[in-house]
Design a protein around this nucleic acid. Sequence first.
DNA 1: AAGACCATGAACATCCTATTGATTGAAGAC
DNA 2: GTCTTCAATCAATAGGATGTTCATGGTCTT
Lengths: 223, 223
Amino acid sequence: MNILLIEDELRVADFVRRGLKAEGWVVEHAGDGETGLAIMQDRDFDVIILDLMLPGISGQQVCQKMRARANTTPVLMLTALDSTDERVAGLRVGADDYLPKPFDFDELIARIQALHRRMTGYGNEDSNGKYQHHGLIYDSAAMVLTVDGIVVDLSAKERELISILMASKNKALSRERILNSVWGTHEDPMTNVVDVYIGRLRKKLGPYGGLITTVRGAGYRFG
Amino acid sequence: MNILLIEDELRVADFVRRGLKAEGWVVEHAGDGETGLAIMQDRDFDVIILDLMLPGISGQQVCQKMRARANTTPVLMLTALDSTDERVAGLRVGADDYLPKPFDFDELIARIQALHRRMTGYGNEDSNGKYQHHGLIYDSAAMVLTVDGIVVDLSAKERELISILMASKNKALSRERILNSVWGTHEDPMTNVVDVYIGRLRKKLGPYGGLITTVRGAGYRFG
DNA sequence: AAGACCATGAACATCCTATTGATTGAAGAC
DNA sequence: GTCTTCAATCAATAGGATGTTCATGGTCTT
């Protein structure tokens, strides 16, 4: 599961990020609405967690803008106030659910899953968190990669990497974005970890290794 | 026996939770209907205890929705009012039994057992409270683990652990989640109790010990 | 052909997990 | 009330898996 968290308070953001990562999910964090909107255009997410109170443009505006761009990713709004007005306003601009702060962590997780399920259409429980491309299946719930029916062991970083790659099918991802998403670092552009891991993944994908294309001067693309 | 308790009043929830745990059952708690519905899709329960008065969607709606999803888990409804109307309405949306608050704890237990018995009486006997994976059978009603026909003694924690593991077959569970579910604690991430218990379980499972896979950097997975 | 960019293997450091034994705590027997 | 017993927890360690860097050689572009 790929999640975009738009939240300016670093303490909250860090707390949420940590917890969601423990669930095995990949979390991207944006400190304000503009950044969030920019990231959305580069990657597809399963759920967007959106704080209502943001510096610059408000959470509501973010929601409105992304909907205007025909982005239908489910949005879970966070707000400090438990006011019905805000809730209604949030839902009106296109949020899908709402959670008042402070919240219980389990509830956050449950709601994210509920949202995701609701949007992907429940009934087909099996398709949950599964990315498939021909004989290549990554089940993010089980954290298992299957290559032509054979289970392949992946390390934690490899799992996160293939997760964002497959979630961003047919989109080029820059090394910086991958670094930020998987390694959670903003600096240190002198490392080549991404390259190394892409190499390892390609090898583990066997016949499907070629699906990860190098976009020279830009990054990598899956699919 | 795995029980899902959907109840918003924390005092009641805590009271019930404690009591059912004392029976040796594993209790999962959801504070509202949405959360409850979400949890149901991740795990199979033997009985669902559902409060009628809930914030957000009502208990009746919860029941209706889960039945619409072809979930046939027996539901015991709790309500503050002893009104026939409510009872009828509850049964109409698919509840299996009904208990007015305040209730006697023994009665609650008796009804849960009755429900469970009734449901396992006709229909799919195997799927209720019994988890099976080849020669490995855990009967949560009898609290008995059988390995290739030989009964193996388990401690309370070991039972709860294998119970959630088998109920979450093929899903990776983080230590945090296991801790929360079996030990009921949110903090203290510096402990390694989970590791220790996983180790003990593996040993007791004998030839099936390998079914508990370590997902390095993430947690454990059964199946 | 030169420069930039990328792939890969190997070496090393680090982190994670399994396991063991000791300690604590609770329940029941006497 | 004390003792016994066993479950539950803690703490320490070793071993292995993973993460990271670096150096080298390959490939693409202009």
